[in-house]
Design a protein around this nucleic acid. Structure first.
Lengths: 226, 226, 226, 226
DNA sequence: CATGAATGAGACTTCATTCAT
DNA sequence: CATGAATGAAGTCTCATTCAT
């Protein structure tokens, strides 16, 4: 996003290098990835145009192939990056330190907020599903990372059960699916929903209401009835 | 418009006629639409190939343009047909004759079953959202039909409130969004979900469990707490 | 132009025919020709669309082929008709009865008026020239008819020379070319001329001035200088 | 942009280089333009075939789109080039240094010669008129350039009037139209004219006679009568 | 005579990718 | 590392024409 590569990047950490680094591979790659993320997210894998990506880049099409090999390679790199971005955020959420109900609330709210903000992420997941998830399958970092969420939920559930707060017949993965559904759908399908009902479900004005509603629904679902 | 179905072409007045009607525009159109539905659903609007559609058709590419004008025109016709198909089914659901709780259960189960079975429908909606719903907006039958569901839900809610069964602070459209989310996501995003958690959420084995879970979640959400 | 064929055309000259003439071939042909004249004139031979012609016709495309064989056949029929139309008009011009100067003036004015009004004619000639006149060559009525004009001019010239009014070194065909040039160009090339000079030379306001100018130029050219 | 002409590619610093420069965009573009000029001129905009152009080119069809975007874009580039070519020639004509009558003669002869030689130019103008001049309108260099001729004519006329040689009631644009008509028509419509009268008006044998005739006609028209 | 349905051939255009400099 | 030029394959669409009824 910083822009202005090329001529800049002067003093290289005090190390005298008379070869002013005219080229910064990392920045170039990052630049390409950023642009590609937008294009793939906006147009889909098939709809995205390599030329369109290259054009909005600081470099040329050749570099795109140099670094990522092919359109599909670039697409996979985008998927990889997008997942990497989440990981950082998730670290900040220390659910295990909260009591079960507050922890569950925090988890749902985090999930909600994340989907609400990261529309590109939502779209890319959608796109992947149209392609049968065959590209994300090849992304190494993908499979591993998702287990964490399940562990978090399992921890919350078992602590909640132990405390007599939660029912004991809830499957963690199913619950995750439920939370995801509620947070994902309103963003991913907002266009058809908006057309059908004249109300964009991702509109800021509805944000707070939906957030509360989803938290409420999840808690009602897991809570033990007296 | 007369229809005639696919497996038909049955009794030709007892006379054995080896002259299959070469000119049957309705059948030709239906044939094209059926194939196109699969292709668009499987590949997306951009990914679909007109040639691929034509090849699996009983006619030629030319007819496709003869009847539908363009790739986009064909895509829109597919959207239109898919929505038309739902309408028929919805008629069979007489929710207003059931008591509020049973009615709500019936509605959710219908929604669940429909999404569970009509994967093409789910995929096409997904695809439309990638395109910002700009094609479905031009489909006349689209906007009108959706209001019905909201009316159904409003009826259920008000009757439930009157009977002291439901809480009074639930918005009908929001509730519809919730139900849709729960029924749609597990089908539409089953690929990435399967990759991430090693479990295909739309797998038949999970079907009954999810169905019950979603009904449960919705009823818990609308129910008035004592 | 009359329209409303089909159902009409009742009594067939007193001859009892219980087969009401539902179809009137001559009118159908005329209808097709009229529409085709416009289309070919507006779009050129290559640019004209058989479908476009058929659409604006009272009949169908099949009839077009039935009567004219092919697109080119239709085009030739149009050329033929257009030339036939002129012939009728030319009969009304009895130049030989006028004195040489008045006769010459009448001829030029007639030529001017004709081109000024019959833009379709002008365009079709233009189109023919793009195609190297290869279609008009096959039109039987074409070659013969043009000699008449030359004879008219020769008659005027010789009578003018005899009367001591005209110079004797003017070739009739060359003079005809001159008159044609002056009358044709301002119509046929009015678009580029208009773009280039911001003045449409075929605009009604300029009509009278150009008419006078051209008559003047021609008379000055043929007149014997004292 | 530097240019480099056609017959060039000459001394490669004395070193015999058998490596014909494979990458020479200017030459590629020029090559495409030259071929396209012929094809459009011969076949018209609609009649011209992109494939036909590409085939007679040193490159492929793809390059044609790379440089000119579309068939219409290429057509416009041809129009632009053709007009550019005239400009160079016009510079050589220093009419203002001649006396009015000689100047007028020179102008007419130049116009005559130009049309007589540049048949492609004449045809392209004709083609443009069939398309209502809508492409030439978008050619930037077009509008400006034409004013020059009018200024030249105005200068000749006013000097001629001042010298008592020319009549004072001639409009410069009308006179230009007259000269154009006489020079253009015999080339542009030579095919139909030839068919009609068995005499190709652009035939070399007639060239001198027509040239003299047109000069004569124009001078007689502008000259003040005693 | 009349007609809607059908079509093979070929039109224009775009794609992801590689090459020469 | 970087770049504009180049490309074969494939894409969408249109044309004049014919066929079955």
């Amino acid at each position: 996003m910083k822009k202005g590569s090329k001529a800049a990047e002067p003093d290289t950490n005090g190390i005298a290098s008379d070869t002013r680094r005219k080229y910064d591979p990392e920045q170039t790659k990052r630049n390409i990835l950023d642009v590609a993320t937008q294009e793939f997210s906006a147009m889909g894998l098939t709809g995205a145009r390599v030329d369109a990506i290259a054009e909005r880049t600081n470099t040329t099409k050749r570099m795109l192939y140099y670094y990522f090999g092919s359109k599909e390679g670039l697409y996979q790199a985008v998927l990889e990056k997008v997942y990497g971005d989440i990981r950082a955020l998730e670290q900040d959420l220390h659910v295990s330190e909260l009591d079960p109900i507050e922890g569950m609330r925090a988890l749902v709210e985090f999930t909600f907020d994340y989907h609400d903000r990261q529309r590109d992420f939502v779209r890319l997941i959608t796109i992947e599903n149209i392609h049968g998830a065959k590209y994300v399958e090849q992304v190494k970092s993908f499979k591993g990372r998702n287990v964490t969420v399940i562990h978090t939920i399992e921890d919350l559930l078992s602590r909640g059960i132990a405390a007599g707060l939660f029912r004991s017949d809830v499957d963690a993965i199913d619950l995750h699916l439920m939370i995801s559904s509620l947070c994902f759908h309103r963003v991913g399908n907002r266009h058809t929903f908006g057309t059908a009902f004249g109300r964009d479900p991702s509109h800021p004005r509805l944000r707070a209401r939906h957030r509360a509603m989803i938290v409420d629904a999840v808690l009602r679902f897991v809570r033990k009835e007296d």
